[in-house]
C-alpha cells in the first residue's frame, strides 16, 4: 500500500526531464555563485557571437584579407574605425572579429584531436595496467617533458608553416596532459564496485572502459578542456607571432601583433587591440573553467 501511494504520480518522460532541469538549475546556481564565472560566460558568449557573425557585423569585412587602403593607413581609433587601422589601412576591429573565428576554430580542433588521442590512451593504460600502462605512460611522460611551443616549432620547421600544420603540431604535444589526467581518474574509478559488477555480467574490457568508465571521466575532461581553450589560443598566437602559423594576410591575432610590434611606440593600437582580444579570450575561458570546476566538483592537475 505505502510505496505506490507515497510516490507522487508522474508521467515518466516529463518527470525525468523535470529532474534534469532541476539538476541543471542547481548546477547553474553553484556556477553563478562565483560571479567571475558569470563574467567569463558573458565574455565567451560575446566572443562566440562575434566570431559567428563576423561577416555581418564587421564594418569592413573585405579588410579581413589582403588589401591596401593608403588613404586611411595607421589611423588611430575613431568612430569609423573603433580600433583604428593598420599600416596598410585595414580596419583592425574587423580583423580582430575574423581573428576570433580562427582562434576559436583552431583551439577547438586542436583540443578535439588532443582529447581523442589522450583520453583513449589514458583509458587503455589505466584499465589494462601492467606493461601496456607502463609503455603508454612513459611515452606520455616524454611528451609532457617537452614544452608544447618548442615541439610545435620543431614540427612546423620540418613540415612548413601553415595553420593546419600548427594545429597538428599543438595537438601532438597536448594529448599527453589528457592521457595523464584520464589514467589517474581511471585508476581510482577502477576500484569502484560497478566495474567489478560489469565484469561479473560478462562484459569485456572494451565495453567496460568505454561504456562504464568513460562517462565518469567526462567532468574532469570538460573542466580541463575549458581551461585549455584559452591556453591553446595563447600558444597558437605565440606561434603565429613567430611567423609559424597561418600566413599573411590571414587575420590571426598573433600575426597581427607581430605586424604591429615595430610601431608600438607610434601606432600602439595596431598591436594592443589584438593583444587585448587574446587576453579577453584566455581570461574568459579561465573564469568559466573555474566555475565549472566548482559545479562538477573535480580537481584537474
Amino acid at each position: 500500500m505505502s510505496t505506490k501511494t507515497s510516490l507522487p504520480f508522474f508521467d515518466t518522460e516529463s518527470a525525468a526531464r523535470k529532474e534534469r532541469i532541476r539538476q541543471l538549475k542547481r548546477g547553474f546556481r553553484t556556477f553563478a555563485g562565483n560571479k567571475l564565472s558569470l563574467v567569463g560566460l558573458a565574455m565567451i558568449l560575446t566572443l562566440v557571437v562575434a566570431a559567428l557573425l563576423a561577416p555581418y557585423i564587421a564594418p569592413f569585412p573585405e579588410h579581413a584579407g589582403a588589401g591596401v587602403y593608403f588613404d586611411q593607413a595607421s589611423e588611430p581609433p575613431s568612430a569609423t574605425h573603433l580600433m583604428g587601422t593598420d599600416t596598410t589601412g585595414r580596419d583592425i576591429f574587423s580583423r580582430v572579429l575574423f581573428g576570433a573565428r580562427l582562434s576559436l576554430l583552431m583551439s577547438g580542433i586542436v583540443l578535439s584531436i588532443a582529447i581523442s588521442i589522450g583520453v583513449t590512451l589514458g583509458l587503455i593504460a589505466g584499465y589494462l595496467g601492467g606493461t601496456t600502462n607502463t609503455v603508454i605512460m612513459r611515452v606520455t611522460d616524454i611528451f609532457l617533458a617537452i614544452p608544447p611551443t618548442l615541439l610545435a616549432m620543431a614540427v612546423v620547421a620540418a613540415t612548413g608553416a601553415s595553420l593546419f600544420n600548427v594545429m597538428v603540431a599543438i595537438a601532438f604535444s597536448w594529448w599527453s596532459w589528457y592521457a595523464r589526467l584520464v589514467q589517474g581518474e581511471v585508476l581510482s574509478i577502477k576500484e569502484d564496485e560497478f566495474i567489478e559488477s560489469s565484469r561479473a555480467l560478462g562484459s569485456g574490457w572494451v565495453r567496460t572502459t568505454f561504456k562504464e568508465i568513460l562517462p565518469n571521466v567526462v567532468s574532469p575532461i570538460t573542466v580541463k578542456a575549458t581551461l585549455d581553450m584559452g591556453f591553446v589560443i595563447l600558444v597558437g598566437a605565440g606561434l603565429s607571432f613567430l611567423g609559424l602559423g597561418a600566413q599573411p594576410p590571414t587575420p590571426t591575432w598573433g600575426a597581427m601583433i607581430a605586424q604591429g610590434r615595430n610601431y608600438v611606440t607610434s601606432f600602439w593600437w595596431i598591436a594592443v587591440f589584438p593583444g587585448l582580444a587574446i587576453s579577453f579570450a584566455v581570461l574568459g575561458f579561465n573564469f568559466i573553467g573555474d566555475g565549472l570546476r566548482d559545479v562538477l566538483d573535480v580537481e584537474v592537475d
Binding site: E193, F194, E196, S197
Partner: peptide, 21 residues
C-alpha cells in the same frame, strides 16, 4: 564471459556497485 549469464553477484554497497552516470 558467456558462462557468466548463469552466475551473478549482488555487491555489498549499492552506492558504488551502480554506475552513477
Amino acid at each position: 564471459k558467456r558462462f557468466r549469464r548463469n552466475m551473478q553477484i549482488v555487491h555489498q554497497d549499492p552506492a558504488s556497485s551502480l554506475n552513477p552516470r
